[in-house]
Amino acid sequence: MAELRYVRALNQALSDAMAADPSVVVFGEDIAAAGGPFGVTRGLLEAYGADRVRDTPISEATIVGAAVGAAMTGLKPVVEIMFMDFVAIAMDAIVNQAAKARFMFGGQGSVPMVVRLPHGGGVSAGPQHSQCLEAWFAHIPGLKVVCPASVADAYGLMRAAIDDPDPVILVENKALYARKEDVPDDLPAVEIGKARIARPGRDATIVTYGAALYTALEAADTLAGEGVEVEVIDLRSLQPWDEAAVLESLSRTHRLVVAHEAVEAFGVGAEIAARMADIGFDELDGPIVRVGAPFMPVPFAKTLEQGYLPDAGRIADAVRKTLA
């Protein structure tokens, strides 16, 4: 056991993957010499050389487009878009090229690439540096989307994403980079598409992912004081998502809340709620309630952002509502 930070777990996973497979390359803005704006790629240049660890110009469309071509030609590129917001510039490469290549070319091969996208607010980064846009990618057939919340999963999902033969969007939450956890020395890869029960409970299920996991756990603590035992499921993967695990939990608790930091409307929670209303209909003993950000851009000022981010109180209220 050792104490490890989330950012170091990502770094360790990248390093281990590069050591294990010479076809893994890493490139993006300021990721080599500077070690990345958040330090995720620190030390990789020194360890693996300028051929495999490259700083790029500020050209998001070409960074991701080049990853597609590199993946088609035998590399396993891991590229970083400095803030998830900037991925809007690179959408063609992700949506029209990477996601479709395997299908469109008749399964001749896939595009084994990872696009790392730091998302999330809470640091007064404002409307263009704080968004949670993961639902965009979960909507695109051909993409996988993962979002680790724990330090162990940061390592395990990074390894799994790099090993995956298909394009994977790895969503990292900026607020979690500094998170510390005791983890085993020998961390395993985590299977993409498998959720985990972060806290068992019998009265209601909260499905969540990313930084909202910790907000949900805080809400569960509050509710435990009221005699309500909430089960908290950390989805870990958004596409594919662990429908079976959520249904299994719902079949025990009969109440479902879906919570995330992303805007509530048309979000990941909408999909989970709709799907469970379908396949889990007869298990429901209360309305499915979603908790997400309001339908507005992420604001800058501290007070505004506090109002914007879903907090434990809102999640607890949602649980109370489904229990009413």
Binding site: V25, I63, A67, G69, A70, T73, G74, P77
Partner: peptide
Amino acid sequence: MPIAVGSALAHQVR
């Protein structure tokens, strides 16, 4: 274009 750039990168690295 960027796909070819990436493919060229792969030729170079590999």
